[in-house]
C-alpha cells in the first residue's frame, strides 16, 4: 500500500483523478469506486507504457475492437473496461481471439506479461475501469472459507458447478472449469465479467468477499484439494457416478460372475 500512496504523487495522477471525477458523477462514483485505485495504479506505468501499449493494440487488437477501442461489429468497445479486463482476457490467452465463435476459449497467452501490462495501461487510459488487483487483494491468506463457500454457491455455482468444475450455457457457450486458474484471473473475472459472465462489482460482492471466494475455490478445486472419499470422478455429480457404477461397478460384478460360473479346467484325457 505504501507503493500505492507513492504512486498517487505521480505527475499524471492528478489528471487521472480529475478525469475520473468528471466521468463518475453522482451515484456512479460508488459503482466505480475501485477505479480510484485503478487509475492510480495505471498511472504508475509511465506514459511510455501507454504509448507502447497503443502500438501493440494497433497491431493485434484494433482490427476487431477499432481504433481508440471504440469497438466494431466484430468486437465490443473497450472504453471503460479497465486494466483488469485486459489483464484477464490477454493474460489467459482468450484475446486475441483465434476465430469467431460462441465464446473465446482459454489458450496459451500470445503476449508476455510485460506486453499485457502495456496493453492494459493503454486500454485503461481510454476510460476508467477496474484495475488489476494486487496480490493482497486476491491471496487466500486470512480469508473466511465458510463465507467464501456461501458466496460461491449464491453467485458462482449456478454456472460454474459447486466446486467450479464448469458447466454448459446456451448455444454452445459455457462457464469454464476454474481448476488451476490463477487467483488473480478469478478475481479479475468477478470484477469485469468477461464475455457471457456477468460482473460482480464491489458494491455487490465486496473486495473481502471476493478474496473469500477465491480462497474457497482454491481449497475445493486445485491440485492440492482434498477429496477424502477417493478419486472425484470429475466432481460433476450423479452423471459421472452413474456412468462409473455401470461401467466399472457392474463390469466388475459381471467379470466376477463369469469367473464364478465358468467350467473349471478339465483333465486331459490320456
Amino acid at each position: 500500500m505504501k507503493k500505492l500512496s507513492a504512486r498517487r504523487r505521480h505527475p499524471l495522477a492528478a489528471l487521472v483523478v480529475l478525469l475520473f471525477a468528471l466521468a463518475a458523477t453522482g451515484g456512479l462514483y460508488t459503482a466505480f469506486a475501485p477505479a480510484d485505485e485503478a487509475k492510480a495504479n495505471q498511472a504508475s506505468s509511465s506514459s511510455l507504457a501507454i504509448k507502447e501499449g497503443k502500438e501493440l493494440y494497433a497491431v493485434g487488437c484494433a482490427s476487431c475492437h477499432g481504433t481508440g477501442g471504440k469497438g466494431t461489429t466484430d468486437g465490443p468497445s473497450l472504453v471503460g473496461v479497465g486494466a483488469a479486463a485486459v489483464d484477464f482476457q490477454v493474460g489467459t490467452g482468450r484475446m486475441p481471439a483465434a476465430q469467431p465463435g460462441a465464446q473465446a476459449p482459454k489458450k496459451k497467452p500470445k503476449y508476455t506479461q510485460a506486453e499485457t501490462d502495456q496493453l492494459a495501461a493503454y486500454v485503461a487510459s481510454l476510460g476508467p475501469g477496474p484495475s488489476v488487483p494486487t496480490k493482497d487483494q486476491y491471496s487466500p491468506n486470512g480469508a473466511d472459507l465458510a463465507n467464501g463457500g456461501e458466496l460461491f454457491r449464491t453467485n458462482c455455482a449456478q454456472c460454474h458447478n459447486f466446486t467450479g468444475e464448469g458447466g454448459a450455457l446456451t448455444e454452445g457457450k459455457y462457464a469454464p472449469d476454474l481448476g488451476g486458474v490463477d487467483e488473480k484471473h478469478i478475481y479479475e473475472a468477478m470484477q469485469t465479467g468477461p464475455q457471457a459472465m456477468p460482473s460482480f462489482p464491489d458494491t455487490l460482492v465486496t473486495a473481502k468477499d471476493k478474496k473469500d471466494i477465491v480462497a474457497y475455490l482454491k481449497t475445493v478445486n486445485s491440485d492440492e484439494a482434498h477429496t477424502p472419499g477417493g478419486y472425484k470422478l470429475g466432481g460433476t455429480g450423479p452423471v459421472s457416478e452413474g456412468l462409473f457404477a455401470w461401467v466399472f461397478g457392474l463390469g466388475a460384478m459381471i467379470a466376477t460372475a463369469v469367473w464364478v460360473a465358468a467350467r473349471s479346467t478339465k483333465a486331459k484325457k490320456s
Partner: peptide, 16 residues
C-alpha cells in the same frame, strides 16, 4: 451477499 440495502448505482450494466 452483503446484507446491505441496494441502491440503483450498486448495480451496473452487465452485473448480476
Amino acid at each position: 451477499n452483503t446484507g446491505l440495502k441496494l441502491k440503483p448505482e450498486d448495480i451496473t450494466v452487465g452485473s448480476l
